[in-house]
């Protein structure tokens, strides 16, 4: 599969934009903005998949499903949940400035890792070629940003957003790692994020009702 130079450069800039927007979604202190940034990230991801689809038409279905589930439904779920929440998140465990440094180091490390050890990481021959190789690096970075968000944000709402990022990263990597998947499987995989986010938000709503806050530091009932 050969991609033209324009598509390659477009992919590169979109991938960079996706990392930046994921970072923004994790670190934005205003919850509404965080949700918006997440929406942008989902949109960028959809377009990345569409760009890949120019050479592999089955991926169009994938991008369409991702557009509906990740962009429309999840964003709607997040935005409708945000009503009645305080405007700003609970203070994060690691603030903005160190986060920038950590994430930059992380992205570079993962880029190096995927380009050096791609044979070990990716079992398909396709993934060893560009631009799929970079795609693996980007999806891993998005994935680890999601994990980073879950680990360092105290606000449960941010946990939900970080979980979405985690899923996005995993799904994006499938473009490179499992390009031959059937449509039904793809739809299934992509749709499961809706369910996960819905359930997570449901739990957070309950948490807000019982504890009165979405601060996960208050969830220490198990401690003895």
């Amino acid at each position: 599969m050969e991609y033209s130079e324009t598509i390659r450069s477009l992919l590169a800039s979109l991938s960079f934009a996706m990392i930046v927007s994921s970072f923004g979604a994790v670190t934005a202190r205003n919850l509404r903005y965080a949700a918006y940034i997440y929406a942008i990230q989902a949109l960028i991801m959809t377009s990345v998949i569409s760009l890949f689809a120019t050479q592999a038409p089955t991926l169009f279905i994938w991008s369409a499903v991702a557009f509906v589930t990740k962009f429309l439904i999840v964003t709607w779920l997040l935005l409708s949940f945000i009503k009645g929440m305080p405007e700003y998140e609970v203070k994060a465990i690691i603030p903005f400035a160190p986060s920038v440094a950590i994430v930059t180091v992380l992205a570079i490390l993962l880029y190096e890792l995927t380009h050096k050890y791609v044979h070990f990481l990716a079992p398909t021959p396709l993934a060893t070629e560009e631009p799929f190789r970079t795609n693996v690096a980007v999806s891993l970075t998005v994935f680890s940003l999601g994990l980073y968000g879950i680990l360092t944000r105290r606000d449960a709402f941010k946990t939900a957003i970080a979980l979405c990022l985690l899923e996005n990263g995993a799904h994006l990597s499938l473009v490179s790692l499992a390009p031959g998947l059937k449509e039904t499987v793809i739809i299934g995989i992509v749709t499961d994020v809706v369910l996960a986010v819905y359930m997570l938000l449901f739990i957070i709503r309950g948490l807000r009702e019982v504890v009165g806050t979405t601060d996960t530091y208050h969830l220490t009932e198990l401690h003895w």
Binding site: L147, I150, L151, T159, Y217, L219, L222, H223
Partner: peptide, 17 residues
């Protein structure tokens, strides 16, 4: 074991990782 039970969500995820 008791000390490992901080009650914080984040630590549990860290353990898992």
């Amino acid at each position: 074991l008791r000390r490992a039970h901080s009650g914080l969500l984040q630590t549990y995820i860290l353990w898992q990782m």
